[in-house]
Design a protein around this nucleic acid. Structure first.
Lengths: 262, 262
DNA sequence: ACCTGAACACCGTTCAAGT
DNA sequence: ACCTGAACACCGTTCAAGT
């Protein structure tokens, strides 16, 4: 909550602190991270039903009042988890932008990043789904909702740049009604949708597909082929691209996932 | 809960009741619908924070114990809302199957049905999102989770039949790794994702797109073009199809939506 | 200025007693 | 066989008193 707002009285002129935070402010920021990690642990151990303000208080060395200085409500904690999650995910997205390849391969690299993060942090990815439900959005603090939107804007802007670059170099042509907004939104929708639906333990064949590591790739390729984003999947082996992204950008993450059998 | 299981002692041989329910069982089933409508009203009036077992009890003429005879937990109520919702939506899907047109137009008709339902029943559509979150799935009764999965299977089977029909008549060609499962899953993902993301009040341009009534159409067309599902959007005016579906199948619903300005 | 924890109102769930 | 509502344990949130 107010832990991050930089009041004049608190700001040290010419202080050596990074980001212009006083020691006190830094301590509060650190404590917030500590609380978020504790909340994450509670969910990981026993599910979302185990995430309780009482239990979070008990697991921490602080009092109820202090918890409520950080989070305006229980739902605010979930949104904080979501923001924490998106920050980590952004690092993977940033890395995927550095992939050496054509523009379409770079889009695929973003999908790889999204998928790998979902596998690495299932609990936090799940928060991203809950954060799009009114149950969370109604009760979370407006400040945090704004913070999440802002973070999402940064990721969107990156994807936007990529589609514009593709349009400039001729890999992609915009058509009436289909600008970079529409393309980014479509990609986000299908990535979000696949991820959310796969959380459901349904036994339907059509969802068991998600076991297939290339389902997300197939879905993305359908979209990108439909947009005529070159090279088309008939002219290029994007499975090879997918594997190359995993090896060249996320080898550590993939090794970790394999070591825990996910 | 047990209201629907047909115990031997309760079953009347040769009774005239539809579906083989005794009067008692019918009364219980009716009461369940009554309770679901009350729950829906609570959410519509004040948001999901207003949905409380206490308030549901108070709004009904029954006691706490009776409420818990119907629903194993609060989350079970939400899943019941979701099931109720999918049943209504299935009626629209069934209607969309009767659209006179080529196979791809019939897919579009399903997307129209999905979109119209989301606009008509925003609260119930939202339940479908929440029902894919572990917060609900963890605590809802296994029976109801199974019931939802079963209902989803029926809708999936319909979509599956449609893609198989398209493959048989040559409108569509399956390729390696992309069978009817993959195609149904991709369409569901993008419809679910668009819907969920649009709930978020984000100010990003890319989400404000959903104001454009044809965004869902564009997204579907990207997928279907990518699959080579004929006729391609370059050879056919699917906006016209969209409008025709609205007029020929859902004119009543569209008129209602316009009358309330949505 | 921040932290504490007792206190409060409400909520989810159960179950012995009633019909 | 089903319904009732009092009772209980726990939860979310607040705030006067403390440092």
């Amino acid at each position: 909550m107010f832990g991050f707002t930089c009041k004049k009285s608190d700001r040290k002129e010419n202080s050596g602190c990074s980001f212009g935070l006083t020691k006190k402010q830094q301590a509060i920021a650190d404590r917030e991270v500590e609380l978020i990690m504790l909340a994450k642990g509670l969910v990981q151990e026993q599910g979302f039903g185990n995430l309780t303000m009482d239990k979070l208080t008990a697991a921490s060395p602080y009092s109820k009042g202090t918890i409520y200085n950080h989070f305006s409500s229980k739902e605010d904690v979930i949104l904080a988890l979501c923001i924490h999650s998106l920050k980590s995910e952004s690092i993977l997205f940033a890395r995927s932008g550095q992939f050496e390849g054509n523009t379409r391969e770079k889009v695929i690299a973003m999908h790889v990043a999204y998928r790998i993060y979902a596998r690495m942090e299932p609990v936090l990815s799940t928060c991203a789904i809950m954060a799009k439900s009114p149950w969370v959005l109604e009760k979370a603090s407006p400040e945090r909702v704004a913070e999440l939107n802002q973070l999402e804007e940064v990721v969107i802007a990156g994807a936007d740049d990529l589609t514009n670059a593709a349009a400039e170099c001729g890999d992609l042509k915009f058509s009436s009604g289909i600008g970079s907004d529409a393309i980014v939104f479509a990609n986000w929708s299908i990535a979000f949708g696949s991820n959310a639906l796969s959380q459901n333990a349904s036994n339907s064949h059509c969802i068991q597909r998600l076991q297939d590591p290339f389902t997300v790739l197939h879905n993305a390729n359908m979209l990108l082929d439909g947009l005529g984003w070159k090279p088309l999947s008939s002219e290029w082996d994007y499975r090879k691209t997918w594997r190359r992204v995993e090896q060249e950008l996320f080898s550590e993450e993939v090794a970790y996932l394999e070591s825990i059998g996910r």
